[in-house]
Simulated assay, not measured.
Amino acid sequence: MAAMSPSERRLQKELMSLMKEPPPGVTVDGDQASQNLTLWTVHMEGVPGTLYEGEKFVLQFKFTNKYPFDSPEVTFIGNNIPVHPHVYSNGHICLSILTDDWSPALSVQSVCLSIVSMLKTTAGQFVLC
């Protein structure tokens, strides 16, 4: 078996961390991610007490071989894409940590927490992209 690249080692470590200690309402399809470390499916539940309470969303994380120096591409997929000022109808997410404010110190877990936080915040609290 070929040795893992630094990117693959980091993704493997993050996958194990996300499976063991996921943020509330977040689960990762560990079997699928283990088969292809560059493409993850993450399930997210709407936070109680918000507009999205009771909703179930699916996120797709795509990683390049330059991860963690390049941010993952994160989109909502499937039939239930949240209606939100920072989410386009095609599922693309406008979140600064996914572009200009990305840092290799961030992780999939921190991205998930940021998306949960974004969905908890009302539209008036955001500056649109």
Rank of each mutant, 00 (worst) to 15 (best):
S107I: 08
Y67D: 10
L113W: 00
L113M: 09
S103A: 05
D100M: 09
D70M: 06
S71I: 07
F69R: 15
E53W: 00
E45Y: 04
I97S: 09
A105L: 12
H84W: 03
S71W: 03
L113Q: 12
F57Q: 13
D70G: 08
L98Y: 08
G78F: 14
N79A: 15
I115D: 00
P104C: 10
K66E: 15
F61L: 09
N65W: 13
E55N: 15
G91H: 08
G78R: 03
K66G: 15
V83Q: 07
Y52D: 11
H86K: 04
N80C: 10
T50N: 02
L51I: 11
V116R: 10
D101H: 12
F63G: 08
E73G: 07
I81P: 09
V47N: 07
T99C: 15
E45I: 00
I81N: 06
C112I: 00
Y67L: 14
Q109V: 01
Y88T: 08
G46Y: 00
S103T: 05
F57D: 01
D70F: 01
S89I: 09
A105S: 15
G54W: 03
P82W: 02
I115Q: 04
P85L: 02
F61Y: 06
I97P: 02
A105M: 12
H92W: 12
I115G: 00
K56L: 14
T99L: 15
E73V: 13
E45P: 04
L106C: 10
E73R: 13
C94H: 13
V74N: 10
H92Y: 13
N65Y: 15
P104H: 06
S103P: 04
V58L: 12
F63D: 02
S114F: 06
G78A: 14
D101E: 14
D70V: 03
S117K: 00
P82E: 00
S114H: 05
K62Y: 10
F69P: 00
P68K: 02
P68H: 07
V58F: 06
L106R: 05
N65T: 15
Q60Y: 15
Y52E: 13
L113H: 01
P72Y: 01
S71G: 10
P104M: 10
L106H: 09
V108P: 00
S103Q: 08
V74H: 07
F69A: 14
S110H: 03
W102P: 14
V47T: 11
V87S: 02
S107D: 07
S117G: 03
V87M: 11
G91F: 09
S107Y: 04
D70P: 05
P68M: 06
S110F: 01
S114A: 11
T64M: 03
